[in-house]
Amino acid sequence: MAEATGTVRGRDAGAGRLVRWDVVVTALLVAVFFGGVGISPDFGGTDNLSFALGDLGEIALIALPMTLLVVCGQVDLSVASVLGLAGALTGRLWEAGWAFEAIVPAVLAVGALCGLINGLLVTRLGLPSLAVTIGTLSLYRGLAYVVLGTEAVSQFPARYAELTTTAVPGTPIPYQIALFALLAVVTALVLHATGVGRAMFAIGAQEDAAFHAGIRVKRIKLALFAVSGLTAAFAGVVYTLRYGSARADNGMGLELAVIAAVLLGGVDFNGGKGTLGGVISGVLLIGLLRNLLMLNDVATEIQSVVTGLLLIVSVLTPRLVGMARERRARRRPAAAST
């Protein structure tokens, strides 16, 4: 009876389809890359790719905690506003004469606090995270304007600014992407190889069952929202330094690119399913596409159209594939009977 071979691949909830989706996104990534090389001669150059990666840094970093949140069946739409608030605070404090070394921890603490507020509203009051973070999206962005108004602060210390615009010596890899790579490995291990990761999948797939298994559901959610806020604030500092400009409207609308990358990576918006490998492919794909559109002087409005379409396609495709597969499965036995 108990024939217990089983493979180690595709072990996460309902992974069969998702593993294939990972492959699809990765294949798409390769196709876009070579297609891009064909269209724009500059695209494949090391300089451009290095720039494209650097340009992707904030999205990539924020996508990591976002993946964990979405696996838990949650979402944080306020990340771009926290990024903006972090930038505005950086600017205001710099202007006020704070040392940059003191500004960073203060800003990170504010980011974590923003995330904590999201988390408390979700876990203590039982509100849906979508609604909570739509609210705080507006709230935190508003605070950014309260802090800095419409002015722009620049002239940040060059040795920090350089870190966000140069590559690790001897490689074409920007510092923020090197950091992303490191954190991605950690996140992947947490999600796929620790008890907390197991718990996250269970929370996303069936929260009640996770709770009945003694998993501290609220604590995990709360921690994730705090980490999400913290990461978004860090990304805000990176963004400010990279553009050399602290403004209240920094990174407006960035949350959609992050969520598009996560969903494109095959994470189920309903929670409980997904892999971090898929998300990395999703992030890179979004980055390449954005860069390609930019190189070809496509207007930013069109870029946002593309992001929107990708988001819809990424949610729709697995569902359509599933429906087609079901229909085929239903037709096959009927056909076989004749």
Partner: peptide, 8 residues
């Protein structure tokens, strides 16, 4: 609902 995570 409570005993098992059915998709897992």
């Amino acid at each position: 609902q409570q005993g098992l995570v059915m998709d897992m």
